[in-house]
């Protein structure tokens, strides 16, 4: 293939095009402002998020698989346990109703846990260096961009799961209950995305990251109350599940499904050691989220110095 290049501009003409008055005055104003502010943070975050959405738009298979997979879970697991005697799963009328909350949380968790993978590929490919050499207001924009993207996907998935559950006869939480469900999903996604990106910066490559995701994902599912209630488990597993953050996301959702009259003081979980109110679940999730974000700070800073 041979393309004839048009003659390039002369040095001086090229220099004039590069050094326009507009860019010069922008650079002068930049020199005067001390630090980048939150507007800069939003600008970089939104641009990174937009990139992820363009990718999704041009490669929609992730979206399709992401929505279909939890629905398959719902149908298959629901069918598997459908003959379990009533009453075994707490107040839920049937297993399908019980399972909805677990699948919502597990799906959001899985999505967020995988958030680090595309960033790891960017890192391996060298694309991430573009972000690292740029004067970002904060490298948390990389985390927030991923979280925003995953959160949007999770919202779609949650809507699909809620709808299918409703069709299968599980009913729906009331409006405020739905708002609470979304808030819980958001908090979980932000916290887990932060952890996943932390791993992305800490681990040597995508093989290791996939390995960690692999050994984290299902064990956390099975040691939470996603598939069975706490009092169904052996004692040791009850202890593990009482400290599994997923439990604190699942139980409030399950509760608002069953109780339209929920309040912050409603008792949503009884562990072997303590009883947990809905408000307490909120506190646990907030701490988890803030803790994850704080935990990865040194990793984000690592290459700054």
């Amino acid at each position: 293939m041979s393309t004839t290049l048009p003659t390039p501009l002369s040095n001086s003409a090229g220099a004039a095009a590069l050094n326009s008055a507009a860019i010069q005055s922008w650079k002068e104003s930049l020199a005067k402002t001390a630090r980048p502010d939150w507007r800069d943070f939003w600008q970089e975050t939104l641009a990174m998020t937009q990139r992820l959405f363009i990718q999704l738009q041009r490669r929609p298979s992730t979206l399709v698989a992401g929505v279909v997979q939890p629905l398959i879970w719902l149908v298959l697991f629901g069918a598997l346990f459908q003959n379990v005697p009533a009453g075994l799963f707490g107040e839920s009328r049937n297993y399908g109703q019980f399972l909805g909350a677990g699948i919502i949380v597990f799906t959001a968790f899985g999505g967020a846990l995988n958030a680090g993978l595309p960033v790891m590929f960017d890192r391996e490919f060298g694309f991430l260096n573009r972000f690292l050499v740029a004067p970002l207001a904060s490298r948390y924009s990389i985390v927030v961009a991923s979280a925003l993207f995953i959160a949007s996907l999770s919202l779609l998935q949650t809507a699909a799961i809620l709808s299918l559950s409703a069709l299968l006869g599980a009913g729906l939480p009331n409006f405020l209950g739905l708002v609470l469900v979304l808030a819980i999903v958001m908090a979980l996604v932000l916290g887990v995305t932060a952890l996943s990106l932390g791993l992305t910066f800490a681990l040597p490559g995508h093989i290791e990251l996939i390995a960690v995701i692999f050994v984290t994902n299902l064990p956390l599912l099975f040691s939470s109350t996603a598939l069975v209630p706490l009092d169904f488990m052996p004692h040791w597993l009850q202890i593990v599940a009482s400290f599994n953050p997923l439990t604190y996301a699942i139980e409030p959702i399950r509760y608002v499904y069953l109780h339209p009259d929920w309040s912050w003081s409603s008792l949503v979980l009884q562990t072997p050691f303590f009883n947990v109110s809905l408000a307490a679940c909120g506190v646990v999730l907030t701490i988890f989220c803030a803790g994850s974000l704080a935990l990865i700070q040194p990793l984000l800073r690592q290459r700054m110095a």
Partner: peptide, 21 residues
Amino acid sequence: ALDKVLTGRELMRLQAALYHL
């Protein structure tokens, strides 16, 4: 290192935002 799914113009917009233009 480019994002092969994006167009050149889209990448330039991203880059501009990273530098807060």
